[in-house]
Design a binder for these strands. Sequence first.
DNA 1: TATGAATGAGCATTCATTCAT
DNA 2: CATGAATGAATGCTCATTCAT
Lengths: 219, 219, 219, 219
Amino acid sequence: MTDFKKMVETLEQTTEKDRKLTPKQEQILKAAVEIFAEKGYASSSTSEIAAKANVAEGTIFRHYKTKKELLISIVTPFMTKFTLPFFASHFAKEVFEEPPEGLESLLRTLLKNRFEFAKENAPLLRIVIQEMAFHPELQENFQEVFLEEIFPKFEEALNHLKEKGKLVEMPNASIIRMIISSVVGFLVTRFIIAPDLNWEDEKEIDYTIDFIMHGLAQK
Amino acid sequence: MTDFKKMVETLEQTTEKDRKLTPKQEQILKAAVEIFAEKGYASSSTSEIAAKANVAEGTIFRHYKTKKELLISIVTPFMTKFTLPFFASHFAKEVFEEPPEGLESLLRTLLKNRFEFAKENAPLLRIVIQEMAFHPELQENFQEVFLEEIFPKFEEALNHLKEKGKLVEMPNASIIRMIISSVVGFLVTRFIIAPDLNWEDEKEIDYTIDFIMHGLAQK
Amino acid sequence: MTDFKKMVETLEQTTEKDRKLTPKQEQILKAAVEIFAEKGYASSSTSEIAAKANVAEGTIFRHYKTKKELLISIVTPFMTKFTLPFFASHFAKEVFEEPPEGLESLLRTLLKNRFEFAKENAPLLRIVIQEMAFHPELQENFQEVFLEEIFPKFEEALNHLKEKGKLVEMPNASIIRMIISSVVGFLVTRFIIAPDLNWEDEKEIDYTIDFIMHGLAQK
Amino acid sequence: MTDFKKMVETLEQTTEKDRKLTPKQEQILKAAVEIFAEKGYASSSTSEIAAKANVAEGTIFRHYKTKKELLISIVTPFMTKFTLPFFASHFAKEVFEEPPEGLESLLRTLLKNRFEFAKENAPLLRIVIQEMAFHPELQENFQEVFLEEIFPKFEEALNHLKEKGKLVEMPNASIIRMIISSVVGFLVTRFIIAPDLNWEDEKEIDYTIDFIMHGLAQK
DNA sequence: TATGAATGAGCATTCATTCAT
DNA sequence: CATGAATGAATGCTCATTCAT
């Protein structure tokens, strides 16, 4: 099982009000994450969540006005945590300051970092991927984060690398797609599609980085 | 909208009994595909499907015993069509007979072919990806097709290429993951995440192939 | 199993139009009797009857306008056959002509005769008893037969016996109730409640007659 | 109408948990009893019951998981109450302690007692008789009560009377059948088949007892 | 704050009946 | 005559949400 304490931290830290969660709220969130991940939002019932959380049905609605608000309270802090903070802190250093192996170093940090995060929050990852398609609220939140924060920083970095002749000539959007496909493809296979295989995580991370690096290297 | 006639063909051809669908069945399938793709299986109601199909609700259940059977009747022929037939016909020729650029040629055929298929069946693709997680029946069907048909043939081809010194040293499973991540990452971005962007499909296909080719080439 | 041919005869002979049943009609009746007896009228579906009868659903409604008409076509001829004909033929002879042991003789003939009939038509008996409560049509038909035919003849016989000092002083209605309770109690136990016990029918019939005879004898 | 308060007591006292019923539950039970008795279980709809009970349909299912559970909650306490307690308390005293007219005394108590009970619970009696045939759960419950409690005690009493030379030579099972046929035949006629006749209950009870007594007396 | 009984709209499914073939 | 696809009202049951305690 994923360590739930870490997951709660994830959810806590980005709660809008930054308020500590009450014990009941924690129980509700834990139960909701497990059940949403297992059966999907639409097939989960609030009564089942209440039962698993050892809480009365009404209690859920005291903390979250609707079932959907409960979902959003789970997903958006995770999305922000999963995408944003990494870029905020690492892009500058890795790519701009340390010169030659900038991309590889960036990728390694990115992958290892997100890998750990996904490992600790696999059910949340599952929920995000499964529910994004159906909830415009989530898509908007994601686009906001992605288009306004990640993509521009990513592009800046890529342009920088291109100038140094380190990158294949390819539109930034395509490069970003390749990288994300490879990273997400790995994480999804590792934690969602086949979590029970005997994974040699270190090696697979290396392979993935090698693959991307060669795939994108200047010819 | 995707050309529904082609989609119906897709569904028809692989129906076990190879029987032509009645007009009402076609209407039901069309409506179900659209609605399932839009809101997801669990959030779609049979009454909505019936209304969109201009059919009485009872009529759905005359043709499909349950709502789930309707889903399966939609998804499994698609899954078979999407994965199986290509490999059956192309692997041998492309990889084993034509010597040097075997992999590239294979990838190009694979991608173009699946691209067209995904283009014609985007909503079906969406449904498969969205529902696989929740329906063991679908997973089983997929595993059957993937583990027993695709994976072995894929491996055989990769081993052949490795012997010829054309491939990076990496476990087959990892290579296959890289390739599929890149291909599916492209198709999903193209048809599901951002279908409304101005895509230059030819170029993107080329980029994707280049990326994979360089990523996997013998160093 | 009960001999269905005899049951069909039962149903045929009293059909209002006295017309022979077509083979399809026979199949439908046979199936309907079995299913009504097993699950009750309200829980039986015409589609199940059609399936068991190897007949299209529509065919049932060609012969019987509604499901209820099918029930009535099954029950009323049976009811008539079960109650009426015996009395018509036997009362006079047994009771009025043969002097001393009139009642016993009558009871013996009554019981043996109805016993055979019930044996051959156990499912029909079951249906009548189960459905009478819910269908006023059946009740009316029964009352007609019972109040207008059976009761008066029964009373006449009882009065005759009373005059001869052979019968306990008790209202006719009560006497008739005792007799019918005993007879029906036997038949219901024998064929409906516990048909699988090892019954010694001859003996049980004798016991039942003895019981009634002593119960009603002049003190 | 039967006095519903007494019926509720009947249902309450034997509820496993011996808990008082909430007012809504009472309304539901009252409505269900009336409707089941009138149209039979299979032809009664939960929406009709809810309407008659002045309760939302969902409320029924909060208290009784399924429609069938509602039926069982109605029938089994009644069955237990109807059969068991009497025998527990009376057999010993009546038959074994008071010597000569043991059987008559027993029958009188039995009949009067069950008569009052049936009078107060006529609709329940109706439901039991009508539904027993279709619900194995009810049959099992009945057999348990009858075979394990009533029949043995009955037999013991009959053997005791036989030893004293008070009883006709007849298998116990047959004797029991005669008695029950007569008693049930009376109650069913009185409360179900023809409740609207002008019954002189005292007299009819006496007749019935006389009938049984003479029918079973040592010759 | 927490509870859980109550609600009623909504759901998948069944079914008697009709009707074009 | 016989068929069986089509119907749509009705059914048992679920569930998010409310609210009195």
